[in-house]
Amino acid sequence: MSPINYVYLAALLFTIGAAGVLIRRNAIVVFMCIELMLNAANLTLVAFSRMHGNLDGQIMAFFVMVVAAAEVVVGLAIIVMLYRSRHSASVDDASLMKL
């Protein structure tokens, strides 16, 4: 088996996550789907790291994780705020950007 299969798997997961972002309305689930996409990206990084035989890919994946953690913290805080003011975690309810 070639390690490229990991990359195929990552592509599949990434696509699933993206579809979830587009389809789901619950902001928290949308967030989880984004996490899924990030993880898929990480998987490719790790697989490439192994294929190329150096650790830069793993470092990159590490940074992605840290940034994702920061993003989750802020994002969830925003969701809590939204829920407080609107009593809804639906991304469709926050549609003030139209006329």
Binding site: P3, Y6, L9, L43, V46, S49, Q58, A61, F62
Partner: peptide, 11 residues
């Protein structure tokens, strides 16, 4: 688990 399989033990 896949990370581990790929030699990224720390990750």
């Amino acid at each position: 688990l896949f990370y581990l399989a790929n030699g990224a033990y720390f990750l």
